Computed example of a mutant assay.
Amino acid sequence: MISRRNIRVKVMQLLYMMDAGKGDNAIKNPVAELEKSFEKTKELLVYLLYFTTEVARYAETDAVKKANKHLPTLEDLNVNTKLAGNELLWQIVENESFKKAVEKVKPENLINPDFLKRIYNNLVASSEYQLYINAQSREKQKEKEILRFIFTNLMLPDEVFTSHLEELFNNWDDDCEMMDQMVNNYLSKPNGYNLQEIISEEKWAFAKSLLISTYNKRQYLLDLIKPKLQNWDSERIASLDMVLMQMGVCEFLYFETIPTKVTINEYIDLAKEYSTEQSGFFVNGILDNIHKELAQADKLNKIEFKQKK
């Protein structure tokens, strides 16, 4: 489930923390810290998926509560429970990987019932919900769209709910954009993901290698970068940009199966997204300059890239 883009973001965040951390705040075991970061990501993902399913299942709870009123109205007795029978919802709820993840993380202990009811009421008031319950058939695309609507249009923009997430998960700010992608990917194909292993062995090896190589070779990487900064005011260069450039040069030199164009494009995008407005242009210029220099010196060994020529 974790993509290489996600991995680069995690490594970037950790290297940035390590660069800033001094004395008692220093990270003693970077690999263990990275592993812990991925575990926190998994816990956050499971909670968001569970909350989404609980909003959908609340239709049945709402119907029971209204029917049990002392003097229920006709409307109370006719609450539409179509959403509670959503086929994708039950495909997720009955998925063995999902059930194991829920058993381990125990998201039910973290849910605030008031927030659950709040999101559900906002759903019922929406035109999207009315279109869904009034449709006579169950189309796979529509089943998927209503769950995505709950997550993307109701949960994520709700400041009360996201404040709740910040209190529960200290990685929410770092992982929020990643969660948008991961939850929607899961809703597209829940049976295609193993929530016990959100990062494959191959990708975990890439993550560890990128972290360790960039950190251990940081002085050599800086020696390659600094001469290219002559036309830039070093005091105005964002610390995060330096981390991104070190990671990029590290990929040039030590990751032979990653094409240099892919590396440059990835770090330009990360600079634009996580650093300053000028960072994309800056990182592009420096990495492109270093890439040309390394290529001229025949220091790039890109196996797959060369085979594709």
Rank of each mutant, 00 (worst) to 15 (best):
H164I: 00
E167S: 06
E167H: 12
E167K: 12
N170D: 12
N170G: 03
N170K: 08
N170H: 05
D173T: 09
D174K: 09
D175T: 08
C176F: 11
E177A: 05
M178N: 10
M179V: 00
M179N: 05
Q181K: 12
Q181G: 03
M182P: 08
V183W: 01
Y186E: 03
Y186Q: 06
Y186W: 04
L187N: 04
S188R: 15
K189Y: 06
K189H: 10
P190Y: 01
G192Q: 14
Y193K: 08
L195M: 11
L195N: 06
L195R: 05
E197L: 05
I198A: 09
I199V: 12
S200G: 08
S200K: 06
E202D: 12
E202C: 00
E202A: 15
K203I: 00
W204Y: 11
S209R: 12
S209F: 04
L210K: 03
I212T: 15
S213R: 11
S213T: 15
Y215D: 03
Y215R: 10
N216T: 15
N216Q: 15
N216F: 07
K217W: 07
R218M: 05
R218L: 02
R218H: 12
Y220P: 00
Y220K: 13
Y220L: 11
L221W: 04
L222T: 14
L222E: 13
L222Q: 15
L224V: 04
I225G: 07
K226I: 13
K228E: 15
L229S: 11
L229D: 14
Q230F: 09
W232E: 11
D233T: 14
S234H: 10
S234M: 12
S234E: 14
E235D: 13
I237K: 08
A238M: 04
L240G: 13
V243E: 10
V243G: 09
Q246I: 00
Q246D: 04
Q246L: 13
M247W: 11
G248Y: 06
V249N: 11
C250R: 00
C250K: 02
F252E: 04
L253W: 02
L253E: 01
L253D: 01
F255D: 05
E256C: 01
I258W: 02
T260E: 08
T260G: 01
V262D: 02
T263N: 08
I264V: 14
Y267W: 11
D269W: 07
L270V: 03
A271R: 07
A271T: 02
S275F: 11
T276Q: 12
Q278W: 03
Q278K: 12
Q278G: 10
S279L: 03
G280T: 09
F282I: 02
V283S: 08
G285H: 11
D288Y: 05
N289D: 15
I290E: 07
I290Q: 06
K292G: 01
E293Q: 14
E293A: 08
A295V: 00
A295P: 00
Q296T: 01
A297W: 00
A297D: 08
D298T: 06
D298I: 03
K299E: 06
K299S: 02
K299P: 03
